[in-house]
Design a protein around this nucleic acid. Structure first.
Lengths: 351, 351
DNA sequence: AGGTAGTGTGGGAGCGCTCCCATCAGTGAT
DNA sequence: ATCACTGATGGGAGCGCTCCCACACTACCT
């Protein structure tokens, strides 16, 4: 009695009970209206809604979470050590997609960094405490224990960029295979015949798929694949430089390069320049990601755009579906879903 | 299954009460230990800690929030409409700083987008419901009502980039004035004498400060300020192009340009090129932000780096301090604090 | 000895919801 | 008129914490 007087009056946020009194109904009825239950008469619903509006009632999330055993929050886990990933537009664009799709819901977005060991430990506690209803995973390494932890805790999760063809988590990906194909086909259509490929890190699934696309595109065009024209970079500018140097050395007559990322393309460009090759006159160059670098490169870089914002949206859709599926006592639909979104070639003057 | 089998009951995560029973103490005592109260004997504390470890106890955030009327969460509000801001490293770097500083605490980070009207409305509800203990504001316009709303609701907030010299909110900023000075002094030391300045949007406080720095640096070097050498861009590439065109037209003999952002510098570069001016031979160019664009520009752009990650850290420090200050019944320290962090000139070949 | 402060400690009383069961009309069938 | 439903509603019983008051005890004073 005495206790709630202090903040009950001064802070004055209305409670369910107050709304109920105002509307002349019971607590349960207001709860039903708030949560959109159909088992309420129209008249009652209207009365409650009026009371809610008059009082400016906003549900208390903590109370709801406590009573209902759910949090209405999802976490976006960022494996921060990768500075590159974090600074790339990839992250921002995905975030934008996630945010826009989330704005239609009551869900809130938690950003969790899992770079350092301490952070990872904190994350494990977090998940163990079931402080979120679901998890979004981005750019996870093949050997990361996180996906298994999530599965074990039975926490709904969606991963962007599956770790392998047999990804067990629900996943969202762009069509790396198709994107690579379109890049190579583009170069072929420009009359290029000796097309090199600088691949990404070989144990990144997406990089493998791009390599597959490169090979198949050449094969389907009736040309063999010259393995001397394929060299791994590691998604870095330095890697791109190194690979380009090797390629130029092995096949001085190459007339096009398809790099597995814009950053590697930037590295390759430097080497080509230094070797006196003109772009695109002597060597055509195509990148991947369509990042800011591509637009600002000299000459502007042709690149494969991934629909990252849409991927973010798709992740939310899939995650919310999984959370909804799991609400009923027995989890039924156990098949995983995998979304693959189309890419788009953005032609510029480098090819 | 171990004795603490994850689903002993019906979802069975251990509660305070269970820990208390295990340790042979009362609920209140466990709570005291968990929250680090000094009023517990060493023996009891040890017993409780053992029980916590054995049971793998993790406090239930929702229950805590409900009982204590705090959330242990802060929000980072992003005025999303500005695509540019979002894609710039600025955001990622700040996020990294925020994240790293937060990892020492129990606070969780909520990302809230306030781009669309619907999102802003949701945000207002959010804040009204006191769903966060504090708010981080980034890149807020001078006429944004958000700061006032926060003040009115008495929600602790820290803004990065104060809106004016008389900012009422606690703020964190980089030394725009000093940064601009160092850029101009750098150009002067390189023997440039007719230094133009492309300013940012004039009602952005930081842009004003940069202009002040530009003027004072020239003045202190004993040179007058030729207002025909100052032209506003609006932080966009197109704005940079337009401003450069105007400047070149008015003062064809200019020999250096200090742009208020790298993006505007990129625009200026294009115009200079088209006008046949060589960089840096004919015209030296300096940007601001030291973004990816600066490194990848041709030639690489000299630019002023802001310690953005540190700014993120500083924001967290100030915000946590404010939240702590506000916990006691009566808020005492009402003076606002303003942190200003030093910038650094990164010299490259464009100057 | 009685009094007066401390220390630890236990546990009642909520915090504001959701869940669910009991209740109460109203309806149609018997 | 009685019974069995059905849809709508009220409200008790928690959810797992924090707060705070009451209650030992143990010093240390007069």
């Amino acid at each position: 009695m005495a206790s709630h007087g202090a903040r009950g009056r001064s802070g004055g946020r209305p409670t369910l009970e107050e709304v109920a009194a105002r509307a002349g109904v019971g607590r349960g009825t207001v709860s039903r209206v708030i949560n959109g239950s159909p088992r309420v008469s129209d008249a009652t619903r209207a009365a409650v809604e009026a009371a809610v509006a008059e009082l400016g009632y906003v549900p208390n999330t903590a109370a709801r979470a406590l009573a209902a055993n759910r949090t209405d929050a999802i976490a976006l886990v960022v494996p921060e050590p990768e500075t590159r990933f974090f600074a790339e537009p990839y992250f921002s664009d995905m975030l934008r997609g996630v945010g826009s799709q989330l704005s239609d819901t009551e869900m809130q977005l938690l950003l969790i960094f899992a770079g350092s060991d301490r952070e990872r430990q904190r994350l494990a506690q977090y998940l163990a405490a079931h402080r979120v209803d679901g998890v979004l995973l981005v750019s996870v390494h093949a050997d990361d224990p996180l996906p298994d932890l999530l599965a074990q805790l039975e926490i709904p999760a969606v991963i962007s960029g599956p770790r392998s063809a047999g990804e067990t988590l629900t996943s969202v990906d762009s069509d790396n295979y198709g994107g690579a194909r379109s890049a190579v086909e583009h170069l072929l259509s420009r009359g290029r015949t000796r097309i090199a490929h600088i691949t990404g890190h070989p144990d990144v699934y997406g990089a493998q798929r791009r390599l597959d696309g490169y090979r198949d595109a050449l094969r389907d065009a009736g040309r063999g694949v010259d393995e001397l024209l394929v060299e791994p970079g590691d998604f870095t500018e330095e890697g791109g430089r190194r690979a380009m140097t090797v390629l130029l050395d092995r096949r001085p007559d190459l007339d096009a390069v398809f790099a597995g990322s814009d950053v590697m393309a930037a590295g390759a460009r430097q080497v080509l320049r230094e070797a006196g090759r003109r772009i695109p006159d002597d060597v055509a160059l195509v990148g991947y990601d369509d990042s800011a670098i591509a637009r600002h490169m000299d000459p502007p870089l042709t690149s494969v755009r991934q629909p990252i914002e849409e991927m973010g949206r798709a992740m939310i859709d899939l995650l919310l579906a999984e959370i909804a599926d799991r609400r009923p006592p027995v989890s039924r639909g156990l098949e995983r879903r995998h979304a693959v979104l189309p890419t788009e070639l953005v032609a510029r003057t480098s090819s």
